[in-house]
Computed example of a mutant assay.
Amino acid sequence: MLTPREELDAELDEAARTWLDAALGEAAAEATRGGASVHGAPRSEAAAEATRSEAAAAGSPRSGAAADASRAVADPYASPSWELRYSAAGRHCGQRHADAVRSLLLVEARAPLASVTRLYDRGTAAERRAVLLTLHLLDLGDTALPLVEDALRTNDTRLVAAAVGPYAADHLAPHAWRHAVLKCLFTEVPVAAVARLADRARGDAELARMLTDFAAERTAAGRPVPEDLRTALALTDPAGHPAPPTAAPAPTEES
């Protein structure tokens, strides 16, 4: 079975593989230094060459990521150079591989909370999604929950789907997790995206009540009840494996 890196190497062209080698080298070096956010050490020749190449492509004077990379050497409070690589992953390795590349960078750097927060706060939706998808592979405990909570407040289905992954399954409190399941139903994110849904839903009477109320509201409004709601409701049975009901839950008298 191929590792994520081997799968990428099989897909990327030589230029992209060379860029990825340099990017992962910078991330590994940062991890060796302890993952500190201060970057004042000299860059590797590979990093310097990448900066010169990007500057040449952008034209002089340097701009964008190339300028940021140049300033990182002189500014003791600048972000680590691998974080600049994180943002550039789609440009160098293609959008189809960007999530995998960004995840590798986060893991290789053993990204601390400061880095993942910075990358999330400053990132595009795609860059934020990659952070969320990788949180469970990092040693962050529950400290990154604010990022998940932020994503669940959006209506961006890409972020919502990424936010209910393994990290949320491990760390979201029951009340917040139940609302995350409802958020998926509201935004039409398939409940299949919810990691460990069957395990956490089993025997959860409060989740069953919330789902039943939501179904009743939909029915009262003349709107269809999503099949995913029936699936999630069925999983709340203590037995954990009943067949999904074929009809929508009946409205309560209060509805």
Rank of each mutant, 00 (worst) to 15 (best):
R71T: 10
E45T: 14
P80A: 14
S44I: 10
E14S: 13
P245Q: 06
A41M: 12
R33C: 11
V189F: 05
A48W: 13
D99N: 04
L135Y: 05
L235D: 02
E11Q: 13
L145H: 03
R153F: 08
A250K: 15
V107N: 02
R128C: 05
E11D: 06
Q95F: 08
W82G: 04
R158E: 14
R196P: 05
T117C: 10
V181A: 04
E127P: 01
A125Q: 14
P245Y: 08
L211Y: 04
S103C: 07
T246G: 08
D156R: 15
S103D: 06
R122N: 11
A89T: 01
A69S: 08
R52T: 03
A163L: 05
A78Q: 06
D228T: 02
H241I: 04
A220R: 13
T219I: 05
R158P: 03
R5E: 14
S70R: 13
Q95S: 14
Y77K: 10
Y167T: 00
H171D: 01
H92K: 11
A163K: 01
L229H: 03
A161V: 02
Q95Y: 10
T236H: 12
R178G: 02
L233V: 04
E206P: 00
R71Y: 11
E188M: 06
T51S: 09
E149Y: 02
D199G: 12
T157Y: 04
S70G: 07
T18E: 11
R110Q: 15
L104T: 01
A109D: 07
R202N: 07
R85T: 02
M1L: 13
R33F: 15
L185K: 01
S81G: 10
A78I: 11
R96C: 00
T18G: 08
P249I: 09
T154R: 14
E30Y: 10
A215N: 03
E253A: 14
Y120N: 02
D199N: 10
E83D: 05
A57H: 04
D228E: 12
G123W: 14
A98F: 05
R110W: 08
E149N: 09
E6F: 07
